[in-house]
C-alpha cells in the first residue's frame, strides 16, 4: 500500500515537472511578444509624447501583463524615488532581480540590458534607433522561441510522465 502511494507520488511529481517545463516553453515566446509590445509603446512615448522616462515606463507597465509589467513598474518606481544615480544602474539591477520570475532567457535579457544602457542618454532620433534595434533582436528571439516551443513543449510533457514511470519501474 505504501509502495503504491509512493509510486503515485513519484508519477505525480514527474508529471508536474514535465508540465511546468512545458509551460515555460510556451510562456517564453508569449512574454517576448509582450516585451515587444511594451517597446512599441515606448517608441510612441518617446517619439510623439516626449514623455520623461519614469512616466513612460510606468505607462508601459500598465499595458502589458505580469511578469513583464513588473520589470517596468520596478524601474519606473526606482527612477521616481531616485534610488540610483543613473538609468543604466537601476535598469541592470531591476533586470538582475526580476528576470528569474519571467520565462525568458539570456539573449532577450542581453537585448534589454543593452537598451537600458542607452535609454535616456541621447536625442530622440537616436533613442528611437536603439528601441527599434532592441525590438528587432527580440523578434528574432521570438521566432527561435516559437520553434523551440513546437519542438519541446509536448516532448517535455511526455518526458515528465515517462521519466516518472521509469523511476517507478526501476524502484519497484
Amino acid at each position: 500500500m505504501i509502495r503504491f502511494a509512493g509510486a503515485m507520488l513519484v508519477l505525480l511529481a514527474g508529471t508536474l515537472i514535465g508540465y511546468a517545463q512545458a509551460a515555460r516553453f510556451a510562456a517564453r515566446p508569449r512574454q517576448i511578444r509582450q516585451l515587444i509590445h511594451a517597446l512599441q509603446r515606448l517608441e510612441t512615448e518617446i517619439q510623439y509624447g516626449q514623455t520623461p522616462l519614469p512616466e513612460a515606463l510606468a505607462r508601459l507597465a500598465g499595458v502589458v501583463p505580469e511578469p513583464v509589467s513588473g520589470l517596468f513598474a520596478n524601474i519606473a518606481g526606482q527612477l521616481e524615488q531616485r534610488a540610483g544615480p543613473t538609468v543604466r544602474e537601476i535598469w541592470e539591477r531591476a533586470i538582475a532581480g526580476g528576470w528569474s520570475r519571467t520565462a525568458m532567457k539570456t539573449p532577450e535579457r542581453e537585448a534589454l540590458a543593452r537598451l537600458g544602457a542607452t535609454l535616456g542618454g541621447s536625442g530622440r532620433e537616436d533613442q528611437l534607433k536603439h528601441v527599434r534595434l532592441a525590438m528587432l533582436q527580440l523578434q528574432a528571439e521570438e521566432t527561435a522561441a516559437r520553434e523551440e516551443q513546437q519542438r519541446y513543449e509536448k516532448m517535455s510533457r511526455s518526458l515528465g510522465v515517462l521519466g516518472a514511470a521509469l523511476v517507478v519501474i526501476v524502484l519497484l
Binding site: P52, L53, P85, T86, G120, S122, G123, D126, Q127
Partner: peptide, 16 residues
C-alpha cells in the same frame, strides 16, 4: 553624469 540625468529626468530626448 548623474546630475545631468536627474536634471533631465533621465530623458535627454524629452528636453531637446
Amino acid at each position: 553624469r548623474a546630475l545631468l540625468e536627474r536634471v533631465t529626468r533621465h530623458s535627454l530626448y524629452a528636453v531637446e
